[in-house]
Design a protein around this nucleic acid. Sequence first.
DNA 1: GTCTATAATCGGATAGAC
DNA 2: GTCTATCCGATTATAGAC
Lengths: 208, 208
Amino acid sequence: MPAAEDQPAASPARSARRQQTESAILEAALDVFAMHGFRGTTLDQIAERAGMSKPNLLYYFPSKEDVHARLLGDLLDHWLAPLRGIDPGGEPVEEILRYVRRKLAMSHDYPRESRLFAGEIIAGAPRISGFLTDGLRPLVDETVALIQGWIAQGRLAAVDPVQLLFSIWALTQHHADFAAQIEIVAPGDRAGDAGAFLDQMYRRLLTP
Amino acid sequence: MPAAEDQPAASPARSARRQQTESAILEAALDVFAMHGFRGTTLDQIAERAGMSKPNLLYYFPSKEDVHARLLGDLLDHWLAPLRGIDPGGEPVEEILRYVRRKLAMSHDYPRESRLFAGEIIAGAPRISGFLTDGLRPLVDETVALIQGWIAQGRLAAVDPVQLLFSIWALTQHHADFAAQIEIVAPGDRAGDAGAFLDQMYRRLLTP
DNA sequence: GTCTATAATCGGATAGAC
DNA sequence: GTCTATCCGATTATAGAC
């Protein structure tokens, strides 16, 4: 198959250039979608921020829906990693604290992705209900069972496991989703403060 | 002044009817604005949900902006009440717990208002930065000072007061803002669970 | 690959009849 | 007060030149 063999090697420059342009578009689109949601975002805004014309943007992505779907897909691929990283063989309190830290780090490093997710949920999760049902929920069920086991063994204080997970999501994502409010009420970098507070809070709550 | 005296009494039915229609519009608008934000919402959606034509809606409110401003104004009028309700003369731990309960009750009873607020913050708080700066921030400063005093007196465990307030906002509003996710991951009414969990969490954190 | 021009539709707001 | 008809700018997407 000479044709198929040539394809990747024949145009490495073009492929790299294409990927670069796509990245620029996705970067710009993430800014706007995260702020205004799918319906509140216009292709003009994305194109201007990406430094190109609207028709040119549509040369790389067939439609507005496609740009959004790509961002959401990339995001969801990484969304569950911290929860999956809880080690059933580890020390319970430390495993939960490690999860909290990883989740907080994700919110700190990818605030726009967090806001994109939040906006989808607030809008009723029309595009990610499948992910929530098939991806998140089974993993939550699994983790809840794990935590219940730890509690039964007396290695973790008796707390509602479902509410525990909700609280971790709320507390970590808040710093990304409500950044605009935080910046006004208490300006300055409070990432360290948040980490220390959550560590203190969950240690007191969970230590048997 | 017979004219001015007549005005209110002369058309009580018309005024009542007008208020009723306005309420129907605001009710419908809250549904849509809370889900899709200002830019993602159309007057057609609001009008249809309110059971009237778009021009008729615009007879009651001059513009889309006015409908939104009215909802936001009504919301912000009540937003700070729970925080203002903290009694400096009360027992510290119980006062904080009472604040948490009131805030949670507000999220439970007015979830759309919570989502409207969240959407504004995610969008960069373009329409409520004045409220955050002039209304919320001074009250936060005041409350932080109060909490620091309680801690200095040894009546409250040593925690970061700013982070404490952020955590309360995050945990209580989460149940309204992320209701769609909660409903999928753990269906059913968990209002009681949430209240018990928060009570347990903050009691352990704050008891000296 | 990138652009200008444009089609087709949507959305906020107005005019004017009833 | 409520409606139909309509204006007009905004928005998604396409056509076609370069």
